[in-house]
Design a protein around this nucleic acid. Structure first.
Lengths: 113, 113
DNA sequence: CGGACGTGCAATGAATTGGTTGCACATCAA
DNA sequence: TTGATGTGCAACCAATTCATTGCACGTCCG
């Protein structure tokens, strides 16, 4: 069953932890296409394999990571496109807030005048 | 004392809560320049004034909200520009991950060919 | 087959979080 | 001055989170 795209809030929660960022960045550094296992990641990080596995589960639930089975091991890769999409979303919201504040209007006026 | 710009992780933590988003959006809806008080926000939300005050403190520590004193009350306003900057940061990281994966190279090649 | 390796699940524990109530202090207005 | 209003701080509680250890199950290889 394909779970609908996760809520932004769930994504932010997934990104609100230093260890999780370390997992993500370690994951993104390697050869993405091949993927990496939780055990392999744990060797490069200061936490246990089980902790990494939990973080990967959170990240996958948030839609920021993808996983597949390869024999007796499970491989993961980072989904940069999802991060990019989330970033764009934030940008638009922030711009809307500033626009409402009337600042953009002032700037436009200044540019015209 | 001006605290250095808060860490992105702290910002994500601040954005990882539904009530906090409700606070932020209610704050951004009104006349931003005038600001709104915690009490005023609490009237429009299903939590107590103290809960709203705590959320505002978290948001301010994360650099997403600004506050100032006006007589006997404290007024807050949302800082959309900070949100926009955070969004851009996310975009760039996501793009870098995808680039490392070699997909952008493939796409470029396809566009050239 | 049988051992080694990789994974997943459950239980546990310390720390953090989101929310509440209660109270004390400051400020504006009648 | 006195009362009403708005804040801020502290104590407390339930729920969640991050990380650990221990164990059972599946899969590859000699």
């Amino acid at each position: 069953m394909v779970t609908g795209s996760p809520s932004p809030v769930a994504m932010f929660a997934a990104l609100a932890d230093d260890t999780r960022w370390a997992v993500l960045e370690t994951l993104a550094q390697g050869d993405g296409a091949a993927g990496r296992t939780a055990s392999s990641l744990a060797e490069a990080l200061p936490v246990t394999r089980q902790a990494v596995a939990k973080h990967l589960a959170v990240l996958e639930a948030a839609g920021l990571v993808e996983s597949w089975t390869a024999g007796r091991e499970r491989r993961y890769r980072a989904l940069g496109a999802e991060l990019t999409a989330l970033g764009r979303r934030l940008e638009r919201i922030g711009d809307a807030w500033e626009a409402r504040l009337g600042r953009l209007a002032d700037i436009a006026e200044r540019l015209e005048g």
